[in-house]
Amino acid sequence: MTAAHVTGAAQGIGRAIALRLARDGHDVAVSDLPDKQDLLEATSQDISALGVRSIALTGDVAEAASVSDLVSDTADRLGSLDVMVANAGVAQTKALLDVTPDEYDRVHAVNGRGIFLSYTEAARQMIRQGNGGKIIGACSIAGHKGFGLLGVYSSSKFGVRALTQAAAQEWAEHGITVNAYCPGIVDTHMWVEVDRDLGAINNVGRGESMRAMAQGITLGRVSTGADVAGLVSYLAGPDSDYMTGQSVLIDGGMLFT
Rank of each mutant, 00 (worst) to 15 (best):
T2G: 11
H5N: 05
T7Q: 08
A10P: 04
Q11E: 02
Q11W: 10
A16H: 06
A18C: 10
R20A: 13
L21I: 08
L21G: 03
A22G: 05
G25S: 09
D27M: 08
V28E: 01
P34Y: 13
P34S: 12
K36S: 10
L40N: 01
D46I: 11
I47S: 03
A56C: 06
A56Q: 04
G59S: 12
V61C: 08
V61P: 07
V61M: 10
E63K: 02
L70D: 01
S72I: 05
D76P: 01
R77F: 02
L78K: 02
L78D: 02
L81C: 10
D82W: 05
M84S: 12
N87I: 11
V90W: 14
T93D: 08
K94A: 07
L96A: 11
L97W: 15
D98A: 05
D98K: 14
D98W: 07
V99N: 11
T100K: 06
P101C: 05
E103Q: 10
E103G: 10
D105H: 15
V107E: 01
H108V: 15
V110Q: 12
I115D: 13
L117E: 14
S118C: 13
T120F: 15
R124Y: 14
Q125E: 04
Q125R: 08
Q125T: 05
Q125G: 08
M126V: 04
Q129T: 12
G132N: 04
G133M: 01
G137R: 06
A138V: 05
A142P: 02
H144W: 07
S156W: 01
S156P: 09
K157F: 00
V160G: 01
A162L: 11
A162T: 09
A168M: 09
A168T: 03
Q169F: 03
E170T: 08
W171A: 00
A172V: 00
A172H: 06
V178S: 00
V178M: 00
N179G: 04
A180Q: 04
C182L: 10
C182W: 09
G184H: 07
D187C: 09
H189F: 15
M190F: 15
W191Q: 09
D195W: 02
L198H: 00
A200W: 01
A200C: 08
N203W: 02
V204Q: 01
V204W: 00
V204F: 00
M210P: 11
R211L: 06
Q215D: 08
Q215S: 07
I217Q: 04
G220K: 03
G220C: 13
R221K: 02
T224N: 09
A226R: 11
A226H: 03
G230W: 07
G230N: 05
L231F: 03
Y234H: 13
Y234S: 07
S240W: 12
D241H: 06
Y242V: 12
M243A: 12
M243D: 04
T244C: 01
V248D: 06
F256I: 12
